[in-house]
Computed example of a mutant assay.
Amino acid sequence: MSSRRRSARDRARRELGQNFLVDRGVVRRLVDLLEPAPLPVVELGAGSGAITRELLHSGRQVTAVELDPRWAQHLRDAFPDLSVIRCDMLDFRFPTAEHAVIGNLPFGITTSVTRRLLTEKNWSEAVLLVQWDVARKRAEGGTQLNAQWAPWYEFHSCGRVPARSFRPRPAVDGGILKVRRRTRPLVPLGEQRRYQRFVEAVFTGRGRGLTEIVRNITGHRLRNLPALPRDLPPEAWPRLYTETT
């Protein structure tokens, strides 16, 4: 293949956010992070099938989601028994039965995909390869998104993935993010909208520090709060909500 054709293909891949994982050790780490229970797995952005192959070798039932028609056909040809859905992962209709999720997500739409996943009700765990800073930020908490979803999910960083593990090579390292659905929610699901509006109001509220913001919004004067909303650990937000509502 000429250098001109390779460059054109690389540009097309980048437009779709396709940084393919070529490190087999990282592939095994991702699959091994799934719980051993034999739940069906939805793979987002299956691409060339590196993770797909490892999932199938582990004996799992896999549905591969891939937007690029060339790679969707490649997956069908390489794995005749694989269920392949050609669509944008943001438009994919997730199964109604319990399942797990895995995927090497395009770095440019990581937050959009994560938000979409968190609104889905039937998956129990997700292992996502994302940009390193995103994986670290989600695991550490301190963001409105983490606080809004903390009653129902746990976020864990499971290691850094060097940029050299991808082709084409991205400008930044990747990171592995594992999300688990809590078996016992910290806030009843029926109060989700009210709770999330409360968190948004605190993050965007006026005041000199968290104590004043909470007092201005709820009328409650609480002690021993950290300086700012981002300093409150994700698991502490449900307690704050309960104490002030």
Rank of each mutant, 00 (worst) to 15 (best):
R180K: 12
L177F: 03
K178Y: 02
F198Q: 07
R181N: 10
Q196D: 09
Q196H: 11
I176W: 01
V187A: 07
E200C: 06
E200D: 12
V187D: 06
L186N: 02
K178Q: 14
R193F: 10
V179F: 03
G175C: 13
Q196Y: 05
R194I: 06
D173K: 02
G190F: 01
Q192L: 14
L186D: 09
V172P: 07
K178V: 15
Y195P: 04
Q196F: 04
R193Y: 10
A201Y: 03
R194W: 01
D173L: 01
P188Y: 06
P170A: 03
K178R: 15
A201G: 08
V172D: 05
R194C: 06
V172T: 04
P188N: 14
V199S: 12
A201D: 15
I176Q: 10
R197P: 01
K178P: 07
P188F: 03
G190S: 09
L177K: 09
E191P: 00
L186T: 02
V172S: 07
R197S: 14
G174E: 03
P188T: 06
R184L: 04
T183P: 00
G190L: 03
R197C: 06
R184T: 05
R193T: 15
V187Y: 06
R182L: 14
L177T: 13
P185D: 06
R181L: 08
L186E: 10
K178H: 09
I176S: 11
L189G: 08
R194Y: 00
P170I: 00
R197G: 12
Q192N: 09
I176L: 10
P185K: 05
A201F: 02
A201L: 05
P170H: 00
R193L: 15
V187M: 04
G190W: 01
E200W: 05
D173A: 05
G174R: 08
E200Q: 13
Y195W: 08
L189M: 08
A201K: 12
R197T: 06
V172Q: 08
V187I: 15
A171M: 02
V179K: 04
P170S: 05
